[in-house]
Structures are given as structure tokens and as C-alpha cells.
Amino acid sequence: MEIKSTDSDSFRLVYENCYSVLIRICYHVVYNMDIAEDLVQEAFERFYLKNMTFPSEDEAKYWLIKVVRNLAFNHLRRGRRETQMVEKVRLRASGGTNTRDAQVDLDENETRREVRKAVSELPENLRMVIILKEYGDLDYKAIGKILGISESNVKVRVHRARKKLEESLAGDEAYVY
């Protein structure tokens, strides 16, 4: 089905089907719900304003993922310093009422923190591939289309990313070859 980004029905359809995958991917790049939501909203705004026609729903989805990925990485590049300042203000403004988050922080076990550290430390090209694979539930072909690389390149990158993750997560968990 052809998707016209300014058509109300098409827009709704794409939004309904893509929102959760976009927010999940975006969250795992920026690790912040508020920022992820802002960026996803911006991606949909661009989607509308571009006034484009896509041959299929999947094509529209890939386009949106591409935009969200760029927005998220640009956000990271703009500097952590800025983000941290915003966070500080936010925390002060909320006056420590978000006890749920604090609880989550407490519950956040060692593994989880290690996982984030390991993923964040991956070079950008490997990181995006593994995020799209694990959080976007996309196959190699789709990932290749989104990143503009070949399917076999995706295969290699996924493997390399896993290898690196394995190395940095090896820590206490012993495994045998």
C-alpha cells in the first residue's frame, strides 16, 4: 500500500505501527525517555513536512528509523555536558518526587549497568547495528537498507558487535570454549 506522508490515514497508520519500535531504538541510543520522545516526535514532524510518498509501509518505517537514528546520534554528539545540565535542572524542578525512578535505580542490578556500559562503548557503526537487531527486531536486509550497507556487511557487524559485547561482559561469568 502506498503511503503518502501528508495523508491523515496514512500518517495514523504509520504512527500506530512505528511508534513503539522508534521509541525503543531511540531510547537505547540516548538512554533517556524524555529525550527519546522529543526526538521521535521530531522524526514524525519531518516525516509530514517532507511530504513524501513511499511505495510501502516498510519503506516509510525504514525512513523514519533512519531519521531517528540520525537525530539520536546528533543528540549524543551535541555533548553530554549539555544533557547533564538539563538533567540537573529537571531533577531539581521535580523536587525528588519521582520515587519510582529512584526505586528503579535501586533495583537496577549490576548486569544491567554493565550491559549499558558495554553497548555505549561500542563504536558507532557496531552499536547501531546491534541496537537495530536487538531492539528494532529487524532482519539483516532491513538493517542494511536503513544503514545503507550490504546485507553481508550487516552480518559481519552484528557478529563483531556480539564479540565485543561478549568480551566486555565476560567479567564474572565464566564460559567454556
Binding site: R24, Y27, H28, M33, T111, R112, V115, R116, V119, I130, E134, Y135, R162, L165, E166, L169
Partner: peptide
Amino acid sequence: ISEELRSDGP
């Protein structure tokens, strides 16, 4: 590894 990754996040 895959499960650890997927279980992370909200």
C-alpha cells in the same frame, strides 16, 4: 547476551 540486552530498558 541477547537476553541481557533485551531485558535492559523500560
